[in-house]
Computed example of a mutant assay.
Amino acid sequence: MPSRTAAAPPTPAALLAHAEALMPRFRDDLRALVGIDSGSASPDGVDAAGAWCVERLAALGFGVERMPTAPVDGTRYGGVVVGRKTGRGTKRILLFAHLDTVFADGTAAARPYREVDGRAFGPGVCDDKAGVVAALHAAQLLGETGFDDFGELIVAFTPDEEVGSPASGAMLASLAAGVDAALCLEGARENGDLVTARKGVADVRIRVRGRAAHAGVEPHRGRNAAVEAAHLLLDLQALNDARPGLTVNVGVVTAGERPNVVPAAAELSGEVRAVTLADLEWALAAIEARAAAPVVEGVSCEAERMAVCPPLETSATADLFAAVEAVAAELGLVVGGAATGGVSDANFVAATGVPVLDGLGPVGGDDHAESEWLDLTSVPGRVAMLAGLVIRVAAG
């Protein structure tokens, strides 16, 4: 049986016109999703948002799977929603965004979705509910303009990005393995820039063990863990900028229990952020080496890597950024690329080795604040650009 002749892909002008025509539906979808409380700590709320997405994906012709996550350290999280659509091409493309917000249950009712002067407001409106809706609308745009020259289009929505993706990070990385491109729907920067690099981050904890003694009667018998902790704090602080962009922050220091006792224990908790994985590993090794060589006699230290999120390096984003620049130019848009110290799910995906680009959602700002906003006028161009990028990747 002869194969169907491939139709010409929709033109940039057609994509933009169709995205503009879909704006009333976009606004209705965004209003509905913002109206669902889905804080990271509310798995039922996240799953309610996921159920809404399941209906939309199914209506767009996707095969949909809801993947529960396992509890992490006794904490339950919502599930992952995955939609798959098979096309006539060969390239596999992943669109991903997160369902969770930083806001508590009740916020959606207390501060409902509203629009003022071309901006939308509400909990999670930019981070990342507009990204979720943008992914759905890009898929709708492709379907309604007859484009299916991809091998597989995968859409994934995760439940716990705002707390570091402890339950879904490995699942998302597994979904991304082997795809030809992964497109992250975090919001664009306030000036419209995409995100071409993110620092990696590692949480560290150092436990210090000394020896208690009466501070008045026999202090010489003590081994002061607090003094060692003070030296450690200063030595770790000195690692800042030892490599370009490297930051080390000890945010919590605890020691001792009573003022008349030489403290036998202390603990430091902090984080390391670095532009490259090599620099992140270098800093962690430096911290571990310092902990292994205490300066206070009779005191021991143990450094522990609590969590490590690898960086999103420009080597992973360069080709896709060049592609999206070309797509944007065809749409009459100009896009820039920005580096940031914050992490996203794109970091985990980049660690699989696949090309990834971040910040492809609509333009917004004031994330995590009551004033969080979304520029509704940016939506048609961003949705058309996303669909155009899928078309360009599918064409190889």
Rank of each mutant, 00 (worst) to 15 (best):
N347K: 05
A329K: 15
V334Y: 15
W282F: 10
V250E: 02
A316P: 12
D345H: 06
V295A: 04
E302H: 14
V327H: 13
R258P: 00
G298H: 10
E297P: 15
S315L: 06
T340I: 09
R273G: 03
N347V: 00
L277R: 13
A289W: 03
E304S: 04
F321G: 07
V252F: 11
D279T: 02
E267N: 09
T276R: 12
N347M: 01
A283N: 02
P311N: 11
E325V: 13
P311K: 11
E325H: 15
G270A: 02
V261F: 07
L280M: 12
F321Q: 10
L280R: 06
V272I: 13
A289M: 03
T314Y: 13
A307S: 06
G336S: 14
R258I: 00
N347T: 01
L268S: 09
C301G: 10
E302T: 14
A318N: 04
L333E: 15
T276N: 11
T317L: 01
L331N: 07
A323M: 07
A278C: 13
A328M: 09
V349H: 03
E271I: 06
L320G: 09
V272C: 09
D358I: 10
L357P: 08
V296W: 13
V299S: 08
A293K: 11
V354D: 13
E297Q: 12
V324I: 15
G342T: 00
S269M: 14
G332W: 09
V334F: 14
G298A: 11
V334S: 15
T276C: 15
T340Q: 10
V253M: 02
G336T: 15
L277V: 13
W282L: 01
D279G: 01
I287E: 03
A264M: 14
C309Y: 08
T352E: 13
T276Y: 14
V253G: 02
V261L: 06
